[in-house]
Each structure stands twice: as structure tokens, then as C-alpha cells.
């Protein structure tokens, strides 16, 4: 077995978690073309409960070579394979690292879960948690561990706030309050709003650019 990839800094690993339908896959679809166009070599691992739906969606989307996308069926509560026993995901990431030796970054999308879902830092170096405006203005107040402990909180679908009666300013204030100064970014992944801010965090905190 070739273990040379273990003895030098390998690709960084970013986790993306959050509830079902919040926009995790849409976020990946928004950031992948921008990362690729700036020369970042990418791999993607997605988790689904009993299918590989998200992996198939990314492969079919044509944004990235399909062989750089792996689907992992977690077969249980999604948080178990990103926190309690991340073995399946570690194996998938290591497969990508062995297959594509020039990778700079692996994105790992968790299956949709609840607000208590968090990533083990044995699995990823840095992680984002995606919630969406449609789930209600009270989500930050519930102070779920996912929302509190992530490195970057993303509040997605800001465009629908007038239609679901959510005061975006109030939501922003509460999200920033419960995060205690840690970053929060508001996005509309469909039209790219806020995506450059997300990328700036990734480039600075994980890809360690500008050094």
C-alpha cells in the first residue's frame, strides 16, 4: 500500500453539515466551479442515508469529473458517520487522496440531520453548518450544537424571507449573538449571493492562501 500521502501535508478536509433541504448540495454546487476555476484540485464525498442521491446529482451536474465524487451510504443516523465512527468517510477520503495525488481539498457533505449534528475533527479540519431561512427565525435561538460549534455558520435562502415571514435583520442579530463573534454568512446559493464571502473564509482558514 502506498502510504506516502501520510507523510506530507495532504489535502485539507472541509465538512458541510445541516438539516435536510437547507442547501448543502446547492452550496457545493455554488463553490465548486469557483474553486476549480482558481486552480484548486478538488474531491467530494457525500453521505446519504440509504441512497447516493447527492453524489449522483453532483456527478450528473457536470461541475466536476464524476470520478472525483464518491457517495457513502451511512445506513444510520447521518451524524454517526461524521462524529462517533467516521471510518467509512475516512476510507472514502483516503481513496480519493490515493487516486488523485494532487488534491488540495476534499469536501465532505453530511447527510441531512438535526441541529445537534457536529463533525469530529478527526475527520475534517474545518466545518460549515448550513441552515435556511425557510426553517424559521427561531433556529439560532435553539442553540443546537451544530450551529454553535461549527467554524462557519451559513444561513441560506435569504431570498425567500419575505415569503415565509422571517425578519432577516432579527435573524442575523440572533445568529451572531449565539455564535459569540464567530462568523455567520447569509447566502442565496442559487444566485451566488454571499458565496464569495464563503470562499474567502475557505481560502484563508483552510487553504491557507495569502501566506
Amino acid at each position: 500500500m502506498n502510504l506516502s500521502h501520510y507523510h506530507r501535508p495532504g489535502p485539507a478536509r472541509i465538512g458541510i453539515g445541516g438539516p435536510v433541504g437547507s442547501g448543502k448540495t446547492a452550496l457545493i454546487e455554488a463553490i465548486v466551479p469557483r474553486l476549480l476555476s482558481s486552480g484548486v484540485e478538488l474531491g467530494i464525498v457525500t453521505n446519504d442515508l440509504v441512497t447516493r442521491e447527492d453524489a449522483e446529482r453532483l456527478k450528473a451536474g457536470g461541475l466536476i469529473s464524476p470520478d472525483r465524487v464518491l457517495g457513502v451510504e451511512c445506513g444510520a443516523c447521518p451524524h454517526t458517520v461524521i462524529r462517533e465512527d467516521p471510518t467509512l468517510n475516512i476510507e472514502a477520503i483516503e481513496y480519493l487522496e490515493r487516486t488523485f495525488s494532487s488534491l488540495d481539498l476534499v469536501l465532505l457533505e453530511s447527510g441531512g440531520d438535526n441541529l445537534a449534528s457536529t463533525f469530529s475533527l478527526d475527520l475534517v479540519d474545518w466545518w460549515m453548518f448550513v441552515i435556511d431561512v425557510g426553517a424559521g427565525a427561531d433556529i439560532p435561538r435553539k442553540r443546537g450544537p451544530g450551529l454553535l460549534q461549527c467554524d462557519l455558520l451559513i444561513v441560506n435562502k435569504i431570498d425567500i424571507s419575505p415569503h415565509v415571514g422571517v425578519d432577516i435583520c432579527g435573524l442575523k442579530k440572533e445568529a451572531e449573538e449565539v455564535r459569540g463573534g464567530n462568523p455567520v454568512i447569509f447566502t442565496n446559493c442559487r444566485n451566488g449571493e454571499g458565496i464569495e464571502d464563503v470562499l474567502a473564509h475557505i481560502r484563508r482558514c483552510v487553504l491557507l492562501e495569502d501566506m
Binding site: H7, P9, R13, L121, D125, W126, R204, V206, L208, M211
Partner: peptide, 20 residues
């Protein structure tokens, strides 16, 4: 457990860490 991270040192230096 992190292997890629950025941290400020006790003297305020900006330290980028990328480890095997």
C-alpha cells in the same frame, strides 16, 4: 486533531499550519 488550520500565536503572529 486538525491538520490544516490558522491560528494567532501568543505574540500575535498569524500562523498557518498544514501537517501530515
Amino acid at each position: 486533531a486538525r491538520r490544516h488550520f490558522r491560528v494567532q500565536t501568543s505574540k500575535g503572529s498569524d500562523c498557518a499550519v498544514a501537517l501530515p
